[in-house]
């Protein structure tokens, strides 16, 4: 079942000012419930502009965004309601922390949705359990945490609204390898607990290949490709043409001249095992 549908979305920034922003041109795609969608493309390809339409932060200049088959702009006064259904985690989300304590900060979203007292407390505690914010952190100031922990709390702040679709704009940017792995783990746990649909903007082809069911490729504001990860990464020449690439392990197999191109290390090992087995 389609949970999110983008139809002929175009966004031009107001008043063709000489100081331009990334526009989006005639983009259409459908996201099925429970899918993991990866979005790849250069900085300035319109990825960030595109995702800000999914929760109504930006209004399409032309075209529509449908959530469960209803236009999210049907009633512009109610646009705030969509924000709890489609959560959006911005780049460097730790820069939005502001409350005195971790607990209060995570409560900000659900409180804005109208949750109070016990219901609020239960929701926050539940989310903290899922993403691994330990109870001893609840009363700490978010500003005293390490970089990775700040990000965990900030992501929890969006998840606490229990969105059915959650969008991440480069969730691992600026983190060390352990931090990156932690963030991916948070996303997996949330998905496991809620069956949410996940959309991730990323620069890591390796992560996308390992994680995404489908991949959207953006280029110069237009949708360049949309398909399963395998389909998209089979077009290595087209991807290279716009300055992107396939995962490194796929590159190795391309260099080997094999037709069977793996997307992950595990797949690669399986392919080679089979080949050696066949030969023997």
């Amino acid at each position: 079942m389609a949970i999110l549908e983008v139809r002929n979305l175009t966004h031009t920034y107001s008043g063709n000012s000489p100081f331009m922003n990334d526009a989006v041109k005639d983009v259409s795609f459908t996201v099925e419930k429970g899918e993991i969608i990866g979005i790849i493309g250069h900085t300035g390809s319109g990825k960030s502009t595109l995702v800000q339409h999914l929760n109504g932060l930006l209004k399409p200049t032309e075209g529509n965004v449908l959530f469960e088959n209803e236009d999210i702009w049907e009633n512009p006064k109610e646009i705030r309601k969509i924000r709890s259904k489609v959560g959006l985690v911005f780049q460097y989300p730790e820069y939005q922390l502001f409350e005195e304590t971790v607990f209060k900060d995570i409560s900000f979203g659900p409180r804005n949705m109208g949750l109070e007292s016990e219901a609020l407390e239960n929701t926050v505690k539940e989310i903290c359990g899922i993403v691994g914010v330990k109870p001893e952190f609840f009363e700490k100031s978010p500003f005293d945490l390490s970089g990775g922990e700040k990000r965990r709390v900030a992501i929890a702040g969006v998840m606490a609204m229990k969105p059915q679709v959650i969008v991440f704009d480069e969730p691992t940017a600026g983190l060390d390898p352990k931090g990156r792995e932690d963030v991916m783990e948070i996303i997996r746990s949330y998905r496991k607990a809620t069956n949410a649909t996940v959309i991730i903007i990323s620069h890591s082809m390796e992560d996308m290949a390992a994680l995404a069911d489908k991949v959207i490729v953006m280029n110069k504001g237009s949708l360049y490709m949309f398909g399963t990860a395998r389909e998209v990464f089979s077009h290595s020449d087209e991807l290279r043409k716009i300055g992107l690439n396939v995962p490194i392990v796929s590159q190795v197999f391309e260099a080997l001249g094999l037709n069977n191109i793996p997307l992950t290390v595990d797949e690669a090992v399986e392919i080679l095992k089979k080949r050696v087995g066949d030969n023997a």
Binding site: E206, P247, I248, V249, V252, V265, D266, A268, V269
Partner: peptide
């Protein structure tokens, strides 16, 4: 990832 592949 190349090292990871060879290692695997």
């Amino acid at each position: 990832q190349t090292t990871e592949l060879l290692y695997a």
